[in-house]
């Protein structure tokens, strides 16, 4: 089967919602819309029907630059060996209490 990208007539947008002030905008899904105004309107109708948030970002999907999944292990595995970056690596006497 072919999975080449047939030119999509209507661009794809990624939708991010802030559930409430104090929290990050979080990716919730995607939708198609001709432009940013329509994307925002559609995002409001589709992703906030039940008080899911108070702010929406929409970003054209083709504007997102992603890390290469083939490089995931060289990018992210080394962090696993650096246990000295975590507080539990260091021995502190119990009678010092919380530190």
């Amino acid at each position: 089967m072919t999975t080449s990208h047939a030119p999509s007539l209507t661009p794809l947008w990624e939708v991010f919602i802030r559930p409430r002030n104090g929290l990050n905008h979080k990716h919730v899904g995607s939708l198609h819309a001709a432009d940013e105004d329509l994307a925002l309107r559609a995002a409001r109708d589709v992703y906030t029907r039940r008080e899911e948030g108070n702010s929406i970002w929409v970003v054209r999907s083709d504007q997102i630059v992603a890390s290469d999944p083939d490089e995931a292990s060289e990018n992210f595995d080394p962090a696993g060996e650096k246990i000295y970056r975590h507080p539990s690596f260091y021995d502190i006497p119990d009678d010092i209490g919380h530190m």
């Binding site: 089967m1 990208h5 999907s61 997102i64 992603a66 890390s67 490089e71």
Partner: peptide, 12 residues
């Protein structure tokens, strides 16, 4: 650099 965004189509 890897710029195909969020859509996976690596079918090879």
């Amino acid at each position: 650099m890897y710029s195909q965004g969020l859509i996976g189509a690596e079918d090879n």
